[in-house]
Structure formats: C-alpha cells, structure tokens
C-alpha cells in the first residue's frame, strides 16, 4: 500500500497516462484515428502491393513477379510521364514558394490588424468553391473563345484569339494557384515567429536586405518553407483534376496514367504498380529535399 502510494506520488504525467485504466481510455480515444489509418491507408496499400506483384498471363491466370514494374521501365511513355510529373511538380513547388513568400511576408510582418485578417481570408476564399469549379473558371478565362484571348485581340496584341489552354504553362499556373494557400499558411506562421528585433539588429550591424534574407529570415523560416514545400509538392504530384482539365489530352500527368490503368484499361495490377511507384517517388523526393536543406522531418511537421 505504502509502495503504491509512493509510486502514485512520484508518477509523472506520462506515467499516469500509461496506468492501466488510462491506457484503455487512450486507446479508445485513438481508435477512430487508428481505424482510419488501418482501413484507408494500410489495408489498401497492402492490397495494392500484392496486386502490383501479380501479372496477368492469361484471362484469370496470374503469375507472381515484377512484370508490372518491368512494363513501366520498358515503355518510354510511362517513365517519361513519371519524370515529367516529378520535374513539373518540383517546378510548381518552387514557383509557389517564390510567389507565396512575399505574400506571406506582407501578411506576417507588414499588414496590421484588420488588413492582416482580410488578406488571410482572401487567401482562403477561393477554397470555398470546389476545385472543379475553380479550374473551370480558369478554363473560361483561358480557352480560345474565352475572356483573356478576346481581350488580347481587342487590345491589338494578337491578330486572332489564341488558345491559352492545354499548355504546360497553363498546368503550372493552375497548380500554383491551387497550392498557394498551403504554402502561405506555414510561411506566415514561420515568419510571424521571427522576432522583428533580429532583423533590426542585423540591419543595425551593417546587414543589407539580401544578407538579412539569406542569413536571418530564411534560416529562421526554413522549417516553414520545408513544410509548405512538402505539402505543395505532394498535393501537386497527386493532383488529377488540374492537369487533366487545364492540360487536356496532352497533359501527361502520372495520376492520369494510374486512372487509365484502373478505370479505362481495367488493368488493376499495372495501376497498383504505378501507384506504388508514385508513393516511392514522393517519399524519395521529400526525403532528398530534407537532406539537402538539412531539415529534420519532426521539426518541419511541428511547424506546419
């Protein structure tokens, strides 16, 4: 009894949490999240992994092996699309960062009071409309008979309406637009936590705008930059709607290949292999990005 009392009093908060009745409560509280993880993430992926390793050799006969992955390597269209998606996603992430950084800086450091919340809301407002409608909006603006080409004609810049849809640039514009908020939010919170007096001190000690940005602001905001970039990169890489609608038939986005395999070709095995490759790709690039910038995943996720 005395022992138990002593152990009760010396128990830390963490210790209390693992006491038997608490452990049950903790488990129950976590249950929905665990079920969600298990049912929607782990199980489908296990199934996909198994699927991707089966090759159809004849109707209803399957063979275990890496055939689906070999198809990916042997068929240039597939891995071209794969590389193209990766490169364009990285490019879109960099563009988003470059555009979002000044905006986030303005919101975090320059705007005050009402203006600040108004600007933040302005970043959020487009998300009240579904992504499909937003993308269709872009199509209305950019298609050959749309608003922008007609404006160009009326201003005398082009002789006849030009088709602004179905270019890589159009896809990039759409991707950057869709991802902006996810970059702005972590950047604003990273920049807000930067003490203004650090900037003033650096300026006072002889620093100029560029050296302060490079040595004070960016190192401080690095976890926020990394968090925003990871989110934007993953969203972009896995985006289906924007490349399809704005890029048309020629968009050559890897998610479209997956869609085609699953839905059009009804080749679930190939689609599963593609899905896995995309997962590996995004993991590898995120990991590489963190290594190159010297960030720790834990720090980055706490910031986002």
């Amino acid at each position: 009894m005395a022992d138990r009392l002593r152990s009760r009093t010396t128990a830390t908060l963490a210790g209390d949490l693992v006491a038997p009745h608490m452990r049950l409560a903790l488990f129950l509280l976590l249950a929905p999240a665990l079920l969600w993880l298990l049912g929607l993430i782990v199980l489908p992926h296990v199934d996909l992994a198994v699927l991707s390793l089966r090759t159809r050799v004849a109707p209803r006969t399957y063979e275990l092996g890496f055939g689906n992955y070999r198809t990916f390597i042997d068929e240039p269209l597939y891995w071209h699309t794969f590389v193209r998606t990766a490169v364009m996603s990285i490019f879109a992430t960099v563009c988003t960062l470059l555009i979002a950084f000044p905006a986030a800086w303005y919101i975090a450091k320059i705007a005050r009071g009402r203006a600040k919340s108004l600007l933040f809301v302005m970043c959020l407002i487009p998300f009240w409309v579904s992504e499909t409608v937003r993308t269709l909006g872009w199509m209305i603006l950019l298609r050959e008979s749309g608003v922008l080409p007609r404006l160009l004609v009326e201003l005398g810049i082009t002789a006849k309406p030009v088709e602004l849809l179905y270019h890589d640039t159009t896809i990039l514009v759409g991707l950057v637009y869709t991802s902006m908020l996810f970059m702005v939010v972590p950047l604003v919170s990273a920049l807000e936590s930067l003490d203004d007096s650090l900037i003033e001190a650096a300026y006072d000690l002889g620093g100029n705008g560029l050296s302060i940005l490079r040595q004070i602001v960016i190192p401080h905001a690095a976890p926020g930059i990394a968090a925003g970039s990871i989110i934007v990169f993953m969203l972009t890489l896995g985006n289906y709607l924007t490349p399809t609608l704005l890029g048309g038939k020629n968009s050559l986005w890897f998610t479209e290949q997956i869609y085609t395999q699953f839905i059009t070709r009804f080749n679930w095995e190939q689609g599963a292999a593609f899905g896995f490759l995309l997962l590996v790709l995004s993991t590898a690039i995120v990991w590489l990005g963190l290594v190159v910038t010297g960030q720790k995943f834990g720090d980055v996720m706490r910031r986002s």
């Binding site: 007096s197 003033e200 000690l205 004070i216």
Partner: peptide, 28 residues
Amino acid sequence: PNRRPVNMVFQNLALFPMMSVGENVGYG
C-alpha cells in the same frame, strides 16, 4: 541604420539563434 557608426544592444538582446556565438559576433 546600417551605415551609421552606431550600434544598438536590444532589449531582448536579439542574438541570432540560427548562428553560433562566433558567427553572431562576426556578423557585422
């Protein structure tokens, strides 16, 4: 301020947490 022969010690000191002590002192 960066061209004045004046330096300031800030209320919260404003040392650069992303730099070592040596880099802080050598910044200027």
